[in-house]
Design a protein around this nucleic acid. Structure first.
Lengths: 226, 226
DNA sequence: ACGTTAAAAATAAAGATATTATAAAGAAGC
DNA sequence: GCTTCTTTATAATATCTTTATTTTTAACGT
């Protein structure tokens, strides 16, 4: 979905300049030429706000404090005033970043992108999921799904799958797998790997009998088919 | 609760300088003098990371990319290299901010504060009341409801529920739960977690005998079913 | 090409180990 | 004195490892 960005600046040229280039990036743009307009448009719930500090009437700092009463999206200050004090004040009133004027378009875009990415990360947090053929491996929930069915793996089995899946198409010896999953200091027989691989294959095959997920490379080890 | 900040810089003087002043602010500090140390300490789940770019071995950019595989907390770059290109690269690899060296302590503190505030805003975004299957958990009022009936939980029990509920579908070891609920410095037996989990389950089961709310992942820990 | 051989891997099942659940008593806090 | 928390001991159970056996594979010589 398109992210919504609100631009607030009394200099129309600069607004136009920013809007054109951000629209070209695929963002949806809301424009306000002063603080009052900005507040009126808040209910449209922008995903990010770019704020000039020096504006007639309510200035950017005040506006920012006001906005923060209602909305928690990232706020980027843009200003020609760029002493340390200005930057700090911007952050204190609830801003998230401070870009000096004149700024390069590239830097503006990158910072906007970085902030939106962060928001996105936060909203999708805790879902570290790896897709592999018809399987989905959730490394935080310790779950593996085939379509919508949950496959039950034990701790060791899951750790082996996780390790292999994270390095697809790469062959690992039993010893390497053992070291990765059990830890360097523990010593044990490598046939236990064989056994676990067997169990894993059996469980997957029950749901997906046609594909091969873990293939054995004779004399070398095992690899995950990516 | 104290926020945990990890400082990564090969210049020990600078690290000490930052640590002292941040500890004075009440933050808990983790220190790493190179990227490898930083990665080793990642499991301690810092709330924010300050990263020098120029370090021997793996540099800050690479480290940042590596960290992003695992953790989504804010990452602040600190560097003497401060061309526009450097700043942009920092953001591209997954960073959230870029502070030029030499920096003022005040600006560092302010930026750290601003980022942590943002995280805080995100995590508490209007979710005082969390719905989970047939339960409603009010994290501010310390109350849990099933339909209209209030379930009575003790302090520790509630804190455990609250922590798990706020990270649904994510498995936590007993040690992790202990650390989150009791605090890092307190030491105790992890079997006490087992006992509390049992009590919690029993109380919930009394009202809702069919659903499973807390499931155990053998050899790993417990998780809240979301 | 074919069969032989030795090494490697797959299988099956029993034994050993480790983790979690339970119950109850003791300690700590209010 | 009552509730809550922690510890201890025990029971139940899931998982892991080992062993023995069979099957597969690649290499070799004929």
């Amino acid at each position: 979905m398109k992210s919504k960005i609100m631009l607030v600046d009394d200099e129309k040229d600069i607004v136009t300049f920013m809007r054109d280039s951000l629209e070209a990036e695929g963002y949806q743009i809301l424009v306000a030429y002063n603080s009052e307009e900005a507040l009126r448009q808040l209910p449209q719930q922008p995903d990010l706000i770019v704020l000039d500090i020096m504006m007639p009437g309510m200035d950017g700092y005040q506006l920012c404090e006001e906005i923060r009463q209602h909305v928690s999206c990232p706020i980027l200050f843009v200003s020609a005033r760029n002493t340390e004090h200005d930057r700090i004040k911007g952050l204190v009133v609830g801003g998230d970043d401070y870009i000096e004027k004149p700024f390069s378009l590239k830097e503006l875009k990158t910072r906007i992108f970085a902030h939106l990415r962060r928001e996105h990360r936060n909203s999708h947090k805790a879902y570290h999921r790896i897709h592999a053929k018809n399987l989905i491996i959730d490394t935080l929930a310790y779950e593996v799904f085939y379509q919508n069915e949950k496959l039950a793996f034990t701790y060791r089995e899951f750790e082996i799958i996780k390790f292999l899946v994270m390095h697809p198409n790469q062959v690992f010896s039993k010893e390497q797998i053992y070291e990765q999953v059990w830890g360097i200091d523990s010593l044990g027989d490598s046939t236990t790997i064989t056994e676990h691989i067997k169990k894993i294959r059996a469980k997957i095959q029950k749901y997906d009998p046609l594909s091969t997920y873990i293939s054995t490379v004779w004399g070398v080890g095992y690899k995950w088919e990516g």
